[in-house]
Write a protein that binds this DNA or RNA. Structure first.
Lengths: 190, 190
DNA sequence: CCAACTGTGTGACCTACATCACATTCAAAA
DNA sequence: TTTTGAATGTGATGTAGGTCACACAGTTGG
C-alpha cells in the first residue's frame, strides 16, 4: 500500500513535516475502497469527513428539483472532495459525492482535521493553501461561466484536464459545463 | 479613527489574539482612502496587497474583449478584496478592483500576510477560515448560476444583501448576476 | 442655469441553448 | 447468446435572455 507515499508527496509539495509529524498526521486518515457508482455522501446525510483521492475518480454534484444534475467537481488522484458547506457548518448534505470509477480514498474527519491544524502549524498552513487554490479555481470557473459560451468552456476544460475525456461520460462533462448533453454532443461534432 | 476596533472585532469573531498580538498584526495594515470611481487595482498592475474594507463599497470585476464587465464580488465593510489569483501567483492583475462609493480600507501586503501567518498560528487559522468561507460562497454562486434563471438569482441576491439595492447601480447588479442591464430592468418591472 | 454625463426604461429583433422525441450504439447481465 | 439498459447522436421546435436603438430621467460641474 503506498497510500502513505501519495499523501506524503502531496503534502510535501506545500509544507515540510518531519517523518514523525507525517506519521502522526497519516494515522488520522482512514483508507476506504468504493465501487463504481457507489455513493460516498448522499443528500441529507450527516457529513463528517472529507476525502483525499488515491485512485479512481469521484464527482461532487447537486441535484435540483427537476432532477437535473450539476457537477461541482471531478476529483482525480490527489484531489480532495466533500460537501464543504455541510462539513463546516454541521448541516446535512445538499451535495452528493459518488464514484465515477472504482476508487480508493483516504478519509479525514473534520474533527481530526481541526485537531491536526491546531496541533501542527504547518498542517494549518497546508489546508489554508489548499483551500486557497480551490477558491481561486472556483472564481475562474465563475468568470468562465458568465463570460464564455458552451463551446469555449468545453475546450477550456479539455485543455485543462485532458484525462477527463477518456474517463468521464460526456453527459457528466455536460453537467459540469452547465449545458445539456444534446448541446454538448452537437458542439464537438462540428 | 476606529479602523483598529473594526478589524479587531472582525478577527475576534474567529480567533482570539492577545492585545499585544493584535497590535502587532494591526501595525502591518496601511490605512488608505479612495474616492468614488477610483481604481485600486487595474488590469496589468503588479498586485501585492489585499484590502479590508472599513467603509464604503468596492467591486472586483473582469472586463472581457468586448469590453463587457463581470463582477466577481461587491466588498462592503469588513469584507476583503483583491485579485487573489495575481496575488498568490505573483502574476499581473487580470481582475480590477475599484470604488463604487468613497471608501476607507486597510491594506495588507501579501508578504506581510504570509509573515504574520507563519509567526502567529492563530492568524493562519483566521485566514484559512476566511478563505474557506469565500470558497463555500463561491461554490454556492456557481451552482446558482447554473441552476437558476436570472430572476431567481436577482431575488436571491437581494435577500442575501438587501443593502446593495440602495448603494449599487442596477447595471452593476446585472453585471454581478451575469445578465444584461436591459434584462434585469425588465425582470423587476413585472 | 444649462451642458454633459451617467443611469435607467422599453420596444423590435436575434441567437444560443433547452426540451422533447426517437434512433442508434455499446456494454453488462442473465 | 440474447436481453436490458445505459450512453450518445440528431432533428424539430420553444424560449430566456442578448443586442441594438432610442427616449427619458437625475446628477454633477462649469
Amino acid at each position: 500500500m503506498d497510500a502513505k507515499r501519495i499523501l506524503k508527496e502531496h503534502i510535501a509539495k506545500i509544507v515540510s513535516l518531519t517523518g514523525e509529524q507525517f506519521d502522526y498526521v497519516f494515522s488520522h486518515f482512514k483508507p476506504q475502497s468504493y465501487k463504481k457508482g457507489q455513493t460516498i455522501i448522499g443528500e441529507g446525510d450527516k457529513v463528517d469527513c472529507e476525502y483525499f483521492v488515491l485512485e479512481g475518480c469521484l464527482k461532487s454534484f447537486y441535484i435540483n428539483d427537476e432532477v437535473k444534475m450539476f457537477i461541482l467537481q471531478f476529483a482525480m488522484p490527489t484531489w480532495w472532495a466533500s460537501d464543504y458547506n455541510a462539513l463546516y457548518n454541521g448541516t446535512k448534505a445538499t451535495i452528493n459525492v459518488d464514484c465515477i470509477t472504482d476508487s480508493q480514498v483516504l478519509c479525514l474527519s473534520s474533527a481530526d482535521r481541526e485537531k491536526l491544524c491546531s496541533e501542527i502549524h504547518a498542517v494549518e498552513h497546508f489546508f489554508r493553501w489548499r483551500t486557497n487554490k480551490g477558491y481561486i479555481a472556483s472564481q475562474k470557473r465563475l468568470l468562465s461561466l458568465m463570460n464564455n459560451d458552451a463551446r469555449h468552456r468545453y475546450e477550456e476544460l479539455m485543455a485543462l484536464y485532458p484525462a477527463l475525456y477518456n474517463i468521464v461520460p460526456k453527459q457528466l462533462i455536460a453537467a459540469y459545463l452547465g449545458v445539456s448533453r444534446e448541446t454538448l454532443s452537437r458542439l464537438y461534432n462540428s
